[in-house]
């Protein structure tokens, strides 16, 4: 049992920073100094590791997402409803992204429900991409997901619980 718990801790390769300064929850450009914490995420075929994270409202996170799978994945942050809308759009487009979502590893926005935008990044197999994001103060739960057709349904999602 102890061995297993250790494995679980190692599995969550998060490094906690002590600073938890004030940030507003906008998507404004964030400098290196503003990052409170780096969370490494593994995107495999068809899963994310870790399968869920906890953040504080206003915390700025740098996600380092490594695609260890054989096919392309994306990492999108948004609420469940917006993720579903994005997923439906992707399926209609047969898996290809629209404008500005072509490049691998670049910062991007995915279109969610009602034209809202979600922070998103696409990662080619073997590559690592970064996404800096600040947790909003007005919601309790968001999801990170890959919405390429069938990927979310196969298990590529995780919850972001936002609490003090």
């Amino acid at each position: 049992m102890r061995k297993m718990l250790l494995a679980l801790v190692l599995g969550l390769t998060t490094t906690t920073a002590f600073a938890a300064g004030q940030h507003d929850a906008s998507h404004a450009a964030t400098s290196e100094a503003d990052v409170d914490r780096t969370i490494r995420v593994e995107a495999g075929d068809m899963w994310f590791d870790p399968e869920g994270i906890e953040v504080a409202p206003g915390e700025t996170i740098r996600f380092e997402i490594t695609n260890t799978g054989n096919i392309e994945h994306e990492f999108v942050i948004g609420d469940a409803q917006a993720q579903e809308a994005h997923r439906e759009m992707m399926q209609e487009m047969d898996g290809s992204h629209g404008d500005g979502h072509e490049g691998h590893g670049g910062h991007d926005m995915a279109e969610g429900a009602h034209g809202g935008e979600m922070p998103a990044v696409t990662i080619a197999p073997g590559e690592t991409a970064e996404l800096v994001w600040t947790a909003p103060g007005n919601v309790e739960r968001l999801e990170y997901a890959c919405n390429l057709p069938g990927h979310y349904e196969s298990g590529m999602s995780g919850n972001i619980d936002i609490r003090e």
Binding site: M46, Q91, P149, G150, H151, E153, S154
Partner: peptide, 15 residues
């Protein structure tokens, strides 16, 4: 339904 395997062999998912 998301098809994930055919004849026992994994396939890229198809909703």
């Amino acid at each position: 339904m998301t098809v994930v395997s055919a004849d026992g062999q994994p396939v890229q998912p198809v909703p």
